[in-house]
Design a protein around this nucleic acid. Sequence first.
DNA 1: GGCGTATTCAACCGCCAGGTTGACAACACC
DNA 2: GGTGTTGTCAACCTGGCGGTTGAATACGCC
Lengths: 117, 117
Amino acid sequence: MDDQLSRVFSALADPIRRDMVARLAVGDATVNELAEPYAVTVQAVSKHLKVLQDAGLVTRTREAQRRPVHLEAEVFDLMTSWIERYRRQAEERYQRLDAVLAAMTEQETPEAEGEAS
Amino acid sequence: MDDQLSRVFSALADPIRRDMVARLAVGDATVNELAEPYAVTVQAVSKHLKVLQDAGLVTRTREAQRRPVHLEAEVFDLMTSWIERYRRQAEERYQRLDAVLAAMTEQETPEAEGEAS
DNA sequence: GGCGTATTCAACCGCCAGGTTGACAACACC
DNA sequence: GGTGTTGTCAACCTGGCGGTTGAATACGCC
């Protein structure tokens, strides 16, 4: 668990943290505000925020003794680019496979089982 | 960790599993083929595949004694839709905030600190 | 300075995830 | 039928995660 992508995915694997992100998308909030709806202690929420912060999903700005949490949207691009790459790749492969299958049924070549490259 | 979204994020949090997905995007593979590049036992890879399968990311098709693993691209949409929702929401908020700030500097109204709705 | 509030740090606990080894099932091949 | 290959199941170990409680820090307020 060292690269950022792992940290981001791991951070969003927890429902509470995902819910926090959802609420932070509406507006910044403090730790106590974020902790209020959940049946956990403030310390636990503070730990969750540390995880989100290490993943680069949120930033904190010291403002008197309050430390409002702010959502950083750029990190999402890291995930979407990873996801899109392999999804597109897989979809292209399906199209290629469909083409191969179509060619097979067309000219009836039963020995063509493994496609090259 | 009961909903599918959590399972998908959790599954992709592991670098080995992410790498497996990347390789399966190129083409289907068997357990032994997938295990070969890593310094782990085949049993561990089998467990990884179970995680990916429970997340709905891959499917298995029995074919003689081989059980090729097949990548399912649709589940990616589950993530991207979640991500896009909150990213868009956050970005819209920034634009609103920018507008508010611009209005504030324009007419110098220092008491306008919390925006409504 | 003293008090209250907001937040984090430290130590601890239970549990699950990821790894191992060993045994077993299923199937092709000779 | 015996053997080799492919894959899973079961039991076990270890580390880290999410939770707790208790104390400490930092700051505004009076």
